[in-house]
Structure formats: C-alpha cells, structure tokens
Design a protein around this nucleic acid. Sequence first.
DNA 1: TGACATATATGCGTCAAGCACATAGGTTAA
DNA 2: TTAACCTATGTGCTTGACGCATATATGTCA
Lengths: 115, 115
Amino acid sequence: MSEKLGSGKQDRYMQPSILMALLDGRSHGYELLQHIGEYGFLKGDAPPGMIYRHLRQMEDEGLVVSQWDASGSGPAKRVYAITDEGREVLDAWVAYMERHAASLVAFVERYRSRS
Amino acid sequence: MSEKLGSGKQDRYMQPSILMALLDGRSHGYELLQHIGEYGFLKGDAPPGMIYRHLRQMEDEGLVVSQWDASGSGPAKRVYAITDEGREVLDAWVAYMERHAASLVAFVERYRSRS
DNA sequence: TGACATATATGCGTCAAGCACATAGGTTAA
DNA sequence: TTAACCTATGTGCTTGACGCATATATGTCA
C-alpha cells in the first residue's frame, strides 16, 4: 500500500542536510555521504551522484567554497566549507522546515481527531 | 534569500489533501480547489490542472471513484468519492507525514541547540 | 597483479511540477 | 442580444530534479 506514497519522490532535504553537516566543520563529498543519512530524510544511502551535483550547484550559488586537498592517503579530496551566505540559507531552510512541520502536525491532528 | 529553497518545488501533498477533503464527503475538482489550501501546504492557490490530473490518476489507482453530476446550475461536475483503498492510502500517508514531521522537528532542534 | 576501498564526476531516461491554453455550459449586465 | 464573466474540466509543452548506471583515478592489501 505504502508504495503509492509520493511515487518514491519525497523531499530528501539534501541541501539543508549538507549545510548542517558543514556547520560542524569542513568536509568532502565522500565523507558527507556517510553522515547526512543521520538526519532521517533518507531511507537508505544517499546516491553519490546526487551529493556531488548538489555540492557543485551550491558552490555556484555561493553557499559553499571548495579547495583541493591532496594530502593524506588515497585520491585527492575536494574539501568544502560553508559560507556566510550558506549559513543564511540554512537558517531560512530551518525556518521553512519548522513551518512545514507545523502544517504536517496539524494535518495529522486533524485526521486523528475525526476518529 | 529564501528564493533558493528547494527551487520552489516543495512537496504540495496534493494527494493526501484531496483524500482528506473527500473524507468529509463527495466533491468535485473545482470545489476541492478552494478547500485543499486550508491544510497549509500551498502558498497561493492550487493550480487547476494539477488537481484534475491527480484526480484522474487516483481514479486509475482505485483510490477514488467518479460520477458525472449534471444536475444543478452550471456545467456538469465530475463528482469524486473516496474508496476503501483510498482510506488505506490516506492512513499510510498520515503515518508517513507523522514520521516526516518528527525528522523535521529533530533537525530544527539540532540546529537551534547549537546556539 | 588483481581486488578492493577511497574519491569525484558525467550521462541518460523518467516523471511530476508549473504554466499556458483549450473547451464548454450557464448567468448577468450593458 | 451579445459580450463578459463565472463555473467546470481538461490537454500540451517545457523544465528540472531524481535515480541509476557508468567512467575515472589513486592508494592499499593480499
């Protein structure tokens, strides 16, 4: 039955999740992959392609900045850091999510209260 | 700033809104248009084309059934009623929305608690 | 030297959203 | 009476994000 919900295309909140993770410090795509699932918006793992595309787009929009890091072992990493503009956008996201949560709760309430 | 949120493509929850409205009794597209905004998931008015497409698709899936009503004034209306399967899907939607709201609240909490 | 983990990125098909537009019946006012 | 408007239901087209598969490259370990 639940397979009819939203055709599997729910909002994954990739952008705010990435920005939130970057609040804790600079990181790179592959590392972010393993952490943004913690927020509960993804069912399984985040698709790698998605992360990198979001990061690139967010850099175009000035929300993050990147820098290559070739130190350490393994291939070079593109390390991202959040910008002031990114912080503002995250703040707006949180405000939006708060309103959205309120609407959801009200909807659920309304449904539950009609026995 | 907020124009960067989700590129304006937030989840409108059209399907559960329609099902919820039909719980209060049979109705038709044009009438639903004026009521499903009450749930707070739409910024302005719902786009008419969207409603009718959803209703058609939901009828294909067996969530609603329709019947022409030529009585009364004005053009004929296609009146929809929710089915048992529609009720089950709505129930699943509500459960999903409840979990989703919890994730959102947790995210907001996490953000707010880091001063 | 072959398999595997790390790390980033592109290409392609699909699907829903958003918007404009088309159709048509009925009512009302100039 | 006819033009404008409200009711009512749909279709067509473009765009953009998503999901998946795939490509590329480096370093490590058996």
